[in-house]
């Protein structure tokens, strides 16, 4: 290793050490604090609903531990924290807030939706052509979803809005994230809608995807399930 490489290896190890070991200049702490704060600030920006639910002090402490174990691997800090939901699931406090992991997944899904490629959503007219096989279609690049055993849609939306959840029923929920206009749109959806979209994402024709959802949820009106997906702009022209 070159002397430059050896210097940078040692400096990196010292920056990422969990405790600031050994004697360092005051100046070294400026670098160390800047790196740590950069990681923690990015996580706080990328997981705002989680931060609201647990409070800033808890969040920043957890984020500091995560950053030590999993420093960024990409300078695009808006993507930092792909492993943060799994980290939350590994914490001893997980049993007290089991819904937090799915809220974190939803924060990640929102960011992915926000920054995904642009595409023309499938409108009602194009839908008919696509259904009958005359037009090619695909899942919109911005479409994401999270299904949860907890009321994730209600908890996530209230946390993003900075308000207490109202009339919260402690039941499983699913949330669909799409970008029909300029900004992401979060829509609570029935499980049948996700079943339909999963089949669409697996490459099934629309009619087959609808049949699949019908079979899985025979008592749910399939037209409602599909309307929820289409209305949110979850599909796009290919």
């Amino acid at each position: 290793m070159s002397t430059l490489g050896a210097f940078q290896a040692a400096f990196t190890d010292a920056l990422l050490a969990s405790a600031c070991e050994g004697a360092h200049d005051d100046g070294f702490h400026v670098y160390r604090n800047t790196v740590r704060r950069g990681c923690i600030d990015a996580l706080e920006a990328n997981f705002p609903a989680v931060a609201t639910l647990v409070g800033a002090a808890w969040f920043r402490s957890a984020a500091a531990h995560f950053a030590e174990a999993s420093p960024p691997v990409d300078a695009r800090m808006a993507r930092y924290g792909q492993g943060f939901p799994a980290f939350l699931a590994s914490l001893p406090t997980h049993g007290d807030m089991p819904y937090l992991v799915d809220v974190a997944h939803t924060d990640l899904a929102w960011s992915a939706c926000h920054d995904a490629a642009d595409a023309e959503p499938l409108d009602a007219h194009a839908w008919l052509d696509a259904w009958e096989g005359r037009r090619r279609w695909r899942l919109h690049p911005a479409t994401r979803w999270v299904a949860s055993a907890f009321p994730v849609a209600s908890l996530w939306q209230a946390s993003r809005d900075g308000v207490a959840p109202r009339n919260l029923a402690w039941l499983p929920e699913a949330i669909l994230l799409t970008r029909p206009g300029s900004q992401p749109l979060a829509t609570p959806v029935p499980p049948a809608t996700l079943c339909f979209l999963e089949a669409c994402g697996a490459g099934q024709p629309l009619a087959a995807a609808a049949d699949h959802a019908c079979e899985a949820f025979p008592t749910f009106p399939i037209d409602h399930a599909i309307a929820a997906a289409l209305g949110a702009g979850a599909l796009a022209l290919a």
Binding site: T3, L4, Q8, T34, P71, P72, V73, A75
Partner: peptide, 12 residues
């Protein structure tokens, strides 16, 4: 690993 700062080095 990306370290979000602008770090020093010996100008060798």
């Amino acid at each position: 690993t990306y370290l979000p700062d602008l770090l020093p080095f010996p100008r060798s």
